[in-house]
Write a protein that binds this DNA or RNA. Structure first.
Length: 613
RNA sequence: GCGCCCGUAGCUCAGCUGGACAGAGCAUCGGCCUUCUAAGCCGAGGGUCCCAGGUUCGAGUCCUGGCGGGCGCACCA
């Protein structure tokens, strides 16, 4: 096991050009439309839709609320630059404390020293000079040591809802990574046995990271690498052959370092049933070869089945044996030699990885003339680069983290860009059941398989649990908690919020997809919970970008739990159906937006968003 | 011995890449189902952010040194 875990109803403004007027103002984010409410005409919606669509690839990245924070940031930046601090980048953040506004910046604090001014005075100066895009901000203040806080105008909020409903399942996507080709390699379990819980964590993480990268515009290939050559496979074959012999009553011993798992005994039985008892009489050499092929095929098929049931699909499966067939090992070696990066010592061929940041040089070809595992791995990653990938992301188990520096060093030696190779390290999983740790070990045959796990907990629960923690944190999987179909189980919380939105549409007798902002007066959404929820819903694209950049899916889980909490609270305190036509329309829009965000987020993680539970 | 990761509430873990009083879930205690699913909502208690220095206007976050836990240090894969 190399990679272990590897609008149109008018409200009486009487202006025949209201639609255009509104549109213009919305696009310019000029305020003053309060008197006209925020009733959207159908044309307006369509034009806004086109506008939004064209903007998709140039998303703002700084802001919390998508359709405006960026302009505010730029306005601030202009003031800062004019003050003679051009090197300082203005950052807008959402304060933790809501009494500090919707957006805040600490530039005045940062600039106080270099400009030799008092932070609060500087903040006032910045505010004086700031040309706040009107219609976006309703209030500003200087607070604390010199923070500048902004409160968003209501119109900015309804823009968020329109945007979400308009984009639908595409909401959350962006184009940050457009044009970048990324290979995400994960699981990559040896075909020597069933996938275990550690592989599950790698599978959930790799798949989610791949989805995050796709959502940000990257061109992604999910790849599975099969170590179908080498010592482990020989041991597997020898183990299976021994089991075949034992199954016909002969004395046979498993090889040293062999595989003791029950699955090989079962496979031996199946082989004999299919091939007849005389199979055991084959000459050892032929028997071993037959049994090796059967073992690898069988194990791969089972792994694929388990992964498919777990909801993971690979775009490519790459076999180590392809490298041998294509002579790529030798080519890689030749290339390294040509670059004079190798030398011979003690009868072995070494690679000067230490010249590229590794702690010591590494052997490529052993004394006995055979290659180390390092060379095929190198050749494989060279192959990835050759296939045109800009980046190669590998999900590895923590037990291989020490392998990262030499891989990076070797790839640098081969001329790869610094950011070409990136290893995502996944800590091994400990499994608890009934308060006791379940040990698993492939060799002793005593372990919890991935299949056991998802059959017991369900795929959604298993994936959720794997993803709710940072990959490189040690993690205890509590089977009892994951299995509980009750409020104690965190998996259902987010799904339930989604289900409740679906319930509203059932009661209202509308198809969710038919809910539209057209004709809805979104200014009626005045409740605190509603406004908080809207602000947070608008963050999805930013959250996805950040999670993709950090390659940390657990951030999406944390965000979704926050959304679910706001949704559940809103649901509990405010009714939608039967509260009066106008308000009901507006709230249906909000419910739909919430449903979209929850569904998009869950789908990104490979978790279903059920209509009913 | 060296390297990497982790150390935050009783437990499992977040903390938006240095911001304003440190959060969630579970567990504990109290309240809420004639109304869109109570798998829910509202509230309470609970903290030396491992320790000690340092950088900074500001540190859970960055630096150094300790302590504790995991993993790794092969001509094994």
């Amino acid at each position: 096991m190399r990679h272990a875990g590897r609008a149109s109803h008018y409200r009486g403004c009487g202006d025949p050009f209201q639609g255009l007027w509104l549109l213009h103002h919305r696009l310019q984010a000029v305020g003053g439309q309060e008197a006209c409410g925020r009733v959207l005409g159908r044309q307006e919606v369509q034009r806004l839709r086109r506008f939004l669509h064209g903007q998709e690839t140039q998303e703002d990245r700084s802001g919390i609320l998508t359709l405006g924070a960026d302009r505010l940031r730029e306005a601030l930046q202009q003031v800062v630059d004019a003050l003679g601090a051009a090197g300082t980048e203005v950052l807008l953040e959402r304060p933790r404390d809501p009494t500090h506004g919707d957006l805040a910046t600490s530039v005045a604090l940062q600039l106080a020293k270099p400009l030799r001014k008092r932070p609060r005075e500087l903040a006032e100066t910045i505010l004086d000079r700031l040309q706040v895009p009107a219609g976006l901000v309703s209030r500003t203040e200087v607070a604390g040591p010199g923070f500048i806080n902004f409160w968003l105008a209501e119109s900015a909020l309804s823009d968020v809802l329109v945007r979400i409903l308009t984009q639908g399942s595409a909401f959350g996507r962006s184009g940050t990574g457009t044009g970048r080709r990324v290979n995400v390699e994960f699981v990559s379990a040896n075909p020597t046995g069933p996938l275990h819980v550690g592989h599950g964590r790698g599978a959930a993480l790799g798949d989610a990271v791949a989805s995050l990268l796709q959502a940000t515009g990257h061109d992604v290939v999910r790849e599975f690498y099969v170590n179908d050559a080498g010592l482990q496979i020989e041991r597997l074959a020898a183990s299976l052959w021994a089991r075949v012999q034992q199954a016909v009553g002969r004395e046979a011993e498993l090889p040293e370092g062999g595989y003791h798992g029950l699955y090989l005994e079962e496979l031996a039985q199946q082989i004999l049933e299919a091939e007849g008892k005389q199979f055991a009489d084959l000459p050892a050499e032929e028997g071993l070869e037959r049994v090796r092929d059967i073992a690898v095929r069988t194990q791969r098929a089972e792994q694929d089945r388990d992964l498919a049931e777990f909801g993971v699909r690979f775009d490519a499966v790459f076999s180590e044996s392809e490298l041998y067939r294509g002579d790529e090992l030798q080519q890689t070696l030749n290339e390294l030699e040509a670059r004079q990066l190798t030398y011979e010592r003690d009868g072995a061929v070494w690679l000067r990885t230490s010249a590229f940041g590794d702690e010591k040089d590494r052997v490529l070809r052993k004394q006995d003339g055979s290659f180390t595992y390092f060379l095929p791995d190198l050749a494989y990653h060279r192959n990835k680069a050759g296939r045109g990938f800009d980046r190669a992301i590998d999900v590895w188990g923590a037990d291989h983290h020490g392998y990262v520096p030499r891989m990076r060093a070797a790839l640098t030696a081969l001329g790869a860009a610094d950011d070409f190779f990136h290893a995502l390290i996944v800590q091994l999983v400990r499994v608890m059941r009934h308060g006791q740790e379940v040990r698993f070990s492939k060799r002793t045959g005593d372990f919890v398989t991935l299949r056991d796990l998802y059959q017991e907990t369900g795929v959604d629960a298993a994936r959720y649990f794997f993803l709710m923690r940072k990959g490189d944190a040690q993690f205890v999987f509590d089977i009892d908690l994951a299995t509980k179909q009750s409020e104690e189980n965190p998996v259902y919380y987010v799904q339930y919020a989604h289900t409740r939105m679906a319930g509203i549409f059932r009661t209202a007798n509308v198809a969710p997809a038919d809910v539209s902002a057209d004709g809805a007066d979104l200014s009626l959404l005045v409740e605190v919970l509603e406004q908080d929820l809207i602000k947070r819903l608008g963050e999805l694209p930013v959250q996805v970008e950040r999670a993709a950049e950090a390659m940390e899916p657990h951030r999406i889980i944390a965000y979704l739990e926050e959304i679910a909490r706001l949704v559940n609270a809103w649901y509990h305190h405010h009714r939608v159906v039967g509260v009066g036509e106008g308000l009901e329309r507006a709230r249906l829009v909000l419910a739909r937006a919430a449903q979209i965000v929850l569904a998009n987020g869950l789908n990104l993680l490979g978790i279903t968003a059920p209509e009913r539970m």
